[in-house]
Amino acid sequence: MISSLISQNPIWAESSKQEGVSIMEEFAVSGATWFWLLVPMPLLIILSVVSLFTNRGR
């Protein structure tokens, strides 16, 4: 996938070769980033749903 993307941009492909960057190198979003992206904000939605039903119960 990355090979095809880089090859679409000649300048970048050239730059990658010059800097000796392996185009096969795999990248991934870090685990901590996934945590901070996907835990606190959805948790707020869940909390607001909980308080919605708690108040209805009253």
């Binding site: 996938m1 990658s16 185009i23 991934a28 870090s30 901590a32 980033t33």
Partner: peptide, 19 residues
């Protein structure tokens, strides 16, 4: 998604790490 992550990682791996 994978294509986007690989491209951005190639630009700067720090862009994939909030910490």
């Amino acid at each position: 998604w994978d294509a986007a992550v690989q491209t951005i990682g190639s630009i700067n791996p720090d862009h994939l790490d909030m910490l």
